[in-house]
Design a protein around this nucleic acid. Structure first.
Length: 773
DNA sequence: GGAGGCCTCGGAAGG
DNA sequence: CGAGGCCTCC
């Protein structure tokens, strides 16, 4: 145990060993926040705390997964028993056990954002409102904001301020939509993401015996990324911790970048009020970055008024100054950044994984993709449409959902006519209207159209009954078969596999493969043994009979909250990472390129109106810069295509905020003052020399068309060059040279080459693109 | 009921 | 420019 503590500096150690009572850890970027959290849990266990009585809440599955792994590494398999997970997953578990008090079954369905929007769109149409005025996404956002402030539909409708606000926004019916939405979710035995929080809070508030149970269960509570919690999450934590007050929150106000979705920095301030005798630990030593990067980051964040004072410092090397790339166009920005990566990689012999390109909006990724591809540098784009969001996957899952929970309205409307079976829009409108009139779920109408006097002809009636009979037969088999067998049975007998198989277009083939991949994932799930439950939880365990195999609804419960595709089975991790700054939070890379530093893009145009929004944007920039370990390069383009139009841009105001002692600004005239003549770079053709004026070629678009998030984009097969010492070669950039020696084999083969102009270089042949003379 | 053309509009994002 | 919803025509 002492050995464990030796890994920590004094501030970190204090934050770990003082585990009794309330404490707050303010952890600067790169200061070992995760380390403190994991060691604190490990320390608790080592001190004899029961893992079953420790609750650790994170925001993302990824964070939970990583922390679990690290704790397991420290204290062994016992770590599995810690209640560690996202707010949503932990609360959904509680609600499966105790949600019946609020009228939900243990099999309730969880609606993701897409499901919620679909339901809202239907409601808005039924109410004869204009979906352009009441854009489902915006309505959902508004409802979500209300929910996280614990304003339920009835209260919303009665609130004079909210009514006034909606009235003057020209959307007076939001309250009614909210009410109908809530009723329909309830009738569907479904909760949206916010309901998982709201209902957890209601459960604790209205059922003292439930609150006492969980207060006893969770003796020690830890919360990661506390600056990102919203009001509802704050209240739940407060209630759970009220008895023991063994609560530890970890966060960094400077990295709060989610205010736009309800996170409240107020929660950090409230903490002091709620627990006046709390202990405060500040982690200010940065272990990640060079002095130049840390100083640059400090000089950025100091421009914010709202912040908790702290002084981040580092013992690391001075490092290189930040660099700035000025490009004529977004296309050229891509070329220059890719070349910057290429050069660093070659000179220092770095793996691709040492690099990340960060941007403000996903749309910016394309020019980087194109340029990296030209240089045969493998890359991976993070955070585009995830596997479970794909339409074909959502459809298959909707069948599973409907089999498990017949009342699920969204699942029903998704699949009742997919594949086409002659139950069209007209019929479904009648069904929904009837369901509303008779106060039942649409499923009950479909199941028994006659009984509810549905006005349809005999053939339609038979189609409805036939569909209901098929779903019921699935429902009956749910517990009788393992997850994989029933899943494949459903996919095939509902006609999904056949429908997808018949589409032989590349997209169709890919859809078919995706469904097969889903089925494989379910098979894998079946092969993994069920995690064991501790003794004391056996009473709560709602599954009376322990089946010898794992069922489809167990799979669906696990999958409902997994929105990111699992990346753990990636064999090839050697790629450049491309992602938004938001997605990069919590990550680090040796060399980081922060792109698109232009006013109206970063900071975004919507942020320029209020100081609070601009400050959040600045924190975002702070997050971006602090991802870098050894070098950070900023870039911007003077012209950029935006929605098809070329617009002139201004450099970001944030660039000027960087302390000039930490950044190298290129001379005004040169494009890229780096001893590099970009006109000779592969792929830089006349258009790019005089860039900005031409549109990206048609072939650019093809690139992203069938982009698969899952797989690395392969580097093109390099020609097999058999190099011998003494050979004369030509390189695109370094010119003519002579091979001195060759070593290594396969993809690691390197050559030392002496170039006439550029001098001696060591090149990885995989990428070097040499021409033998 | 479904395919294909037309029109509109665009933020970042976890669960 | 491109995605996705809507409308029209078959």
């Amino acid at each position: 145990m002492e050995k464990l503590l030796n890994d920590l500096n004094e501030a970190q150690r204090n934050a770990v060993v003082n585990y009794e009572g309330p404490s707050m850890v303010i952890a600067g970027a790169g200061s070992g926040k995760t380390r403190v959290l994991t060691y604190r849990v490990a320390y608790l266990v080592a001190q004899g705390a029961d893992p079953f009585h420790i609750l650790a809440l994170t925001f993302t599955n990824k964070a939970a997964r990583e922390m679990k792994e690290r704790i397991t590494h420290l204290v062994g398999p016992e770590a599995r028993n810690v209640w560690m997970g996202t707010f949503h997953s932990i609360f959904s578990r509680v609600l499966r056990i105790d949600g019946h008090r609020l009228g939900y079954t243990p099999q309730y369905t969880i609606y993701d954002t897409d499901d919620s929007k679909r339901l809202l769109r239907n409601i808005i149409k039924e109410m004869d409102l204009d979906p352009k005025v009441y854009a489902p996404g915006q309505v959902l956002h508004r409802i979500s904001a209300a929910k996280t402030r614990l304003i339920l539909a009835r209260q919303y409708m009665e609130d004079p301020e909210l009514r006034q606000a909606d009235q003057s926004a020209g959307k007076p019916h939001i309250g009614q939509i909210y009410l109908t939405y809530s009723e329909r979710l309830k009738k569907s035995d479904a909760m949206d993401f916010d309901d998982l929080l709201v209902n957890m809070n209601i459960l604790l508030e209205q059922f003292p015996e439930v609150m006492i149970k969980y207060q006893r269960k969770f003796e020690y509570i830890l919360v990661d990324e506390y600056q990102d919690t919203n009001y509802c999450q704050y209240l739940i934590i407060k209630r759970l911790a009220a008895n023991n007050e063994n609560i530890c929150v970890v966060g960094d106000d400077a990295q709060s970048i989610y205010a736009f979705r309800g996170a409240s920095i107020q929660n950090i301030l409230n903490f002091k009020k709620d627990y006046p005798d709390f202990q405060l630990f500040k982690l200010e030593q940065n272990y990640r970055s060079t002095k130049n990067i840390v100083n640059a980051a400090n000089s950025i964040i100091i421009n914010n008024k709202d912040q908790i004072f702290k002084k981040i410092w580092t013992d690391n090397d001075e490092g290189t100054k930040l660099r700035l790339i000025r490009a004529k166009s977004d296309t050229e920005e891509g070329t220059l950044v890719a070349n910057g990566i290429f050069e660093l990689k070659m000179n220092k012999q770095l793996p691709n994984s040492a690099f990340a390109i960060l941007y403000r909006t996903n749309a910016q990724s394309r020019s980087f993709e194109e340029s990296l591809r030209k240089l045969n540098i493998p890359y991976r784009i993070y955070g585009s449409v995830s596997f479970y969001q794909r339409k074909e996957i959502k459809n298959v899952l909707a069948y599973f959902r409907l089999a498990i929970n017949n009342r699920d309205e969204d699942a029903l409307t998704r699949v009742i006519n997919y594949p086409a079976r002659g139950i069209g829009q007209t019929t479904m409108e009648k069904v929904i209207v009837a369901a509303g009139d008779k106060q039942v779920s649409p499923w009950q109408i479909v199941e028994n159209p006659m009984g509810y006097g549905l006005n349809v002809n005999a053939s339609t009636r038979q189609k409805l009954e036939g569909f209901a009979a098929m779903i019921k037969s699935f429902t009956i088999q749910l517990k009788k078969k393992n997850a994989y067998d029933i899943a494949r049975h459903i996919a095939s007998s509902a006609g999904i596999l056949k429908d997808l198989y018949e589409d032989q277009s590349p997209e169709g083939v890919s859809r078919f493969e995706n469904v097969e991949e889903l089925l494989n994932a379910i098979r894998e799930f079946c092969d993994t043994p069920r995690p064991s439950m501790p003794e004391e939880e056996a009473d709560d365990n709602i599954q009376a009979e322990e089946l010898p195999y794992r069922t489809l609804d167990e799979f669906m419960q696990e999958v409902a909250l997994i929105t990111d595709a699992d990346e753990s089975n990636k064999s090839d991790r050697n790629h450049v990472s491309l992602m938004t700054v938001h997605a990069a939070k919590g990550l680090e890379f040796p060399h980081v390129f922060v792109s698109g530093l232009e006013d109206n893009l970063f900071p975004s145009i919507q942020s320029l109106n209020s100081r609070a929004d601009l400050e959040e944007e600045r924190r975002l920039f702070y997050v971006a810069v602090t991802r870098g370990m050894q070098s950070v390069t900023l870039s911007y383009a003077e012209n950029r295509y935006r929605w098809g139009d070329l617009i002139a841009t201004e450099p970001s105001r944030f660039i000027d905020e960087v302390d000039s002692a930490c950044i190298e600004i290129p001379r005004k005239v040169s494009f890229y003052d780096h001893g590099l003549d970009f006109r000779k770079i592969r792929g830089a053709d006349a258009q790019e020399i005089n860039p900005g004026i031409t549109r990206p070629g048609r072939k650019l678009k093809k690139l992203s068309a069938f982009r698969n998030t899952q797989s690395d984009v392969p580097a093109g097969k390099p020609d097999n060059i058999i190099l011998q010492p003494g050979m004369r070669v030509e390189h695109d950039r370094f010119g003519e040279g002579e091979v001195i020696s060759v070593e290594g084999n396969g993809s690691n083969q390197k050559a030392i080459i002496h170039f006439k102009q550029a001098g001696q270089k060591q090149l990885l042949l995989k990428f070097a693109r040499l021409k033998i003379l």
